[in-house]
Structure formats: C-alpha cells, structure tokens
Design a protein around this nucleic acid. Structure first.
Lengths: 202, 202
DNA sequence: TTATTTTTATACCAATCAGTACAAAATAAA
DNA sequence: TTTATTTTGTACTGATTGGTATAAAAATAA
C-alpha cells in the first residue's frame, strides 16, 4: 500500500482514515450494542486490524465512548438544534420529530445508540451501562432547564412541572427508539408524535 | 440430600423445584438480558448445575423462551386484565398504570423483559431478537383490536385511528421501560402517565 | 545508504462462552 | 438384594471473547 500522505512525521503512514473508521464502529455499536459488537465485527467493518484499532482508539470501552461522543455530535445534533426553537412547544415538537427522523433514517441502524448501546448488560459492562444512564439523564436535565426558562419567559403555563414534561418527552423519544429498532417507519412515528403533541397543556 | 418426594417414577428424585428455578432464571434474564446472562449467572441464581438445567429446560435459548412465557403469565398479566376494562380510556389507563407498576416493583428488576431481553444483539441471537419484536408486535395488535372494538361500541371517537393510538400506547410503555431500567420510580412514571393521558382525544 | 520511527499483518494468549461426557448418587421396581 | 432409571456433581470440550507479542513493511531523517 502506498498512500503517500506527507504527515510530517517519520514512520509508516496510517493506511486508513480514523474519522471514517470511527463512523463505521459507531454503526456497528448502534446496531448490535456494546456487548453484541465483537472485536471481529468492529475490525471487519472498520477495515482495519486489531493492533491498528488499539493503537488508534484504545480498548473496546474507550472506542465505545468515542462512538458515543461522535453520536452526540452527529446524529444527536438535532437536540441542541431543537433547544434553540423559540417556544417550549416548538422545542418539544422539534425534539420529537428530530428523534423520529434520526431513528428511522435508512442510512443508519434503527433506534438510538444511547438507548440500545448498553441497556441491559452482563456484570462486566455494568459501568458502561451506568454511564449511559447518566448521559440520558443529562439530556433530560438539559430539556428540563430549557422548559424552566420557557416558563420564566411566560412561554409555558405555570401549572406545568418542567421536570415532568421533560421526562414525558424523553420517555416518548426512548419509546420511539424501541419502535424504530423493531422496524417502525418514520410515518409510523410521525403519527405517534401527533398524538403525543395532543397532550400539550392548553 | 433427601427430599423424599414420591413422584411415582424410578430414578433419583429432582432436588429442586422447576417453577422456582424458572422464576430465578426469569429474574436474571430480566436484569441482564439474554446475552448478558451467562450460564454461570443462571445456574448460580437457580441453585442448580448445568446438566440439571439442560435436562429440565433445554438449552439457553429454550430456557429464555420459557422465561418469556412465564413473564407473560406473571408480571405481564396486567395486559389481559387491562383489556377487560369497560371503556377504551379505562383500558389505556390500566395498561399504562399496570406497566408502570410492574416495571418499578422493588421485588423485580426494573423495566420490561420484552424490551430489554434482546433489544440489540450479536448475530448469534438475531433470531431471538426478531422473536421478541414479533411478540411486542402481537401485543400491540391485541391492543389495537380492543380499541377497534371500542370504536364499534361507540366508545372511541371515529376520528381516532386505533392502530395509531395502540402504537402510541406501546411507545409510552416501552419508553417507561427504559426509564424504569434507568432508575425511575413509580411516582416518576405516574406523572408521565398523567401527561400521556392528557393526550386523550376529547 | 543506514538508522529511526510508526503502522501493519500474522499469530498467538488466557479467560470465558455454551454445551456435554461420565461416573457417583439416589430412588423405584423386581 | 439386584436391576433399572433418573439426577447430580465434576470435569471437560471446542469455539469465541478481548487483548497483545513480534516481526515485516513503509515512511522520514541523517
């Protein structure tokens, strides 16, 4: 192989693109979960061999965490975008529709990595499972804070508890993730969202 | 050991109760999922050794299927009970409250076996994953049929699509399962249900 | 060239996985 | 007792797991 890329440092040049390899790993983890994804699955999909993987990304847990970060910045990008909507109602609807779109996009596995990645695990991956719980909780908190702000801006009725509403929203999002991983289409989830938005406090 | 139980057939008597052992296995699968539960986990929790497990329940897949059946008849018993409610609204509310109760009961693992049991798996357990998808779909169909009946009985507005409403209900139930597996309490889920029921078509 | 550095490819490691062979143990039947 | 039958406990199997040792390969630097 001769991928002559002068990277200004000595030694044999890397024969693959780390970003692209990480994207492939993300796809595998997204589809099979942390435990269901074997190193052979990963190296095959990434097009590299084991020593290259370990030298570039660390061990399996570290690679998974990097895939989580990438997921947050890529497919999960709809969240910060939705939080920028002007009204509480628009925020919630953007969250739900954004989630449905990502979860059912044909170009990637169904569902949500933060849900399927390590929902139930053996004892060995328990720490990662807790880590994902914390990350999901952090997302819920961010939504709650946005709704609290909406309330101070007079944008959400004072009768509504922002924490409860935030929990409701992420519950629907996680439920849609299960549906999407079971073969639900975007149209299916759109109708679920129509019903969920009907719950909006008048 | 001398558990003198005259079972009318020759041979060394079984030293454990199969029903109780299956319950223990159910707990393990419920907590760790199919792939996360190792045979050592199972035999330890069931209090038996490997040959006894295989002689009584078959291989791991077969044991898991028996645990699914037991889950349906035991913890999942709230579903047929809810479907017997007189009105569509009462049916849906009973489904949601029944699910929340089972998913957060302190006597068993959080969440729902039908969701966590095999949500995302390696290639080896793909068949089981599909089987669980089918079982979840069957449950959704049963709810849809009940709502269709409610519609013919004038109990549910004709403007509502029973299939959509059924999918919304199971989406919330599955979302609550993820929440419960992440540490949500019954009170947390009760408030989610209050909001979800607010979506009820007037 | 020669030396140095980094990556690649192959082959291996110990641990664990699901599943089983085999003999001792414990019962009923003869 | 003796025989037949079933379960139990231990030890094992081959396959796969995550992870690594080692040396060839491919680049820069001297």
């Amino acid at each position: 192989m001769s991928t002559t890329k002068s990277t200004s440092h000595p030694g044999r040049p890397r024969a693959f693109c780390p970003d692209q390899a990480l994207d492939r790993a993300l796809q595998v983890f997204w589809q099979k979960g942390y435990e269901g994804a074997s190193l052979s699955d990963l190296t095959t999909a990434m097009g590299i061999n084991r020593p290259s993987l370990y030298a570039t990304f660390g061990d399996k847990k570290t690679l998974f965490r990097k895939a989580l970060d990438r997921y947050e910045q890529g497919p999960g990008g709809y969240v910060p975008e939705a939080l920028n909507q002007p009204t509480a109602r628009a925020v919630v609807e953007a969250l739900l529709r954004g989630a449905a779109k990502v979860q059912t996009a044909s170009c990637n596995p169904g569902g949500c990595l933060f849900v399927h990645g390590a929902l139930s695990t053996g004892t060995e991956s328990e720490a990662l499972r807790q880590e994902l719980i914390a990350r999901r909780g952090a997302g819920e908190n961010t939504i709650r804070e946005r709704l609290e702000r909406a309330q101070t801006e007079g944008d959400l009725p004072a009768s509504v508890n922002p924490a409860d509403l935030a929990r409701f929203v992420v519950t629907v999002i996680h439920g849609m993730a299960v549906q999407a991983a079971s073969g639900a289409t975007l149209a299916d989830l759109e109708r679920v969202i129509d019903l969920a938005m009907g719950a909006w406090p008048a």
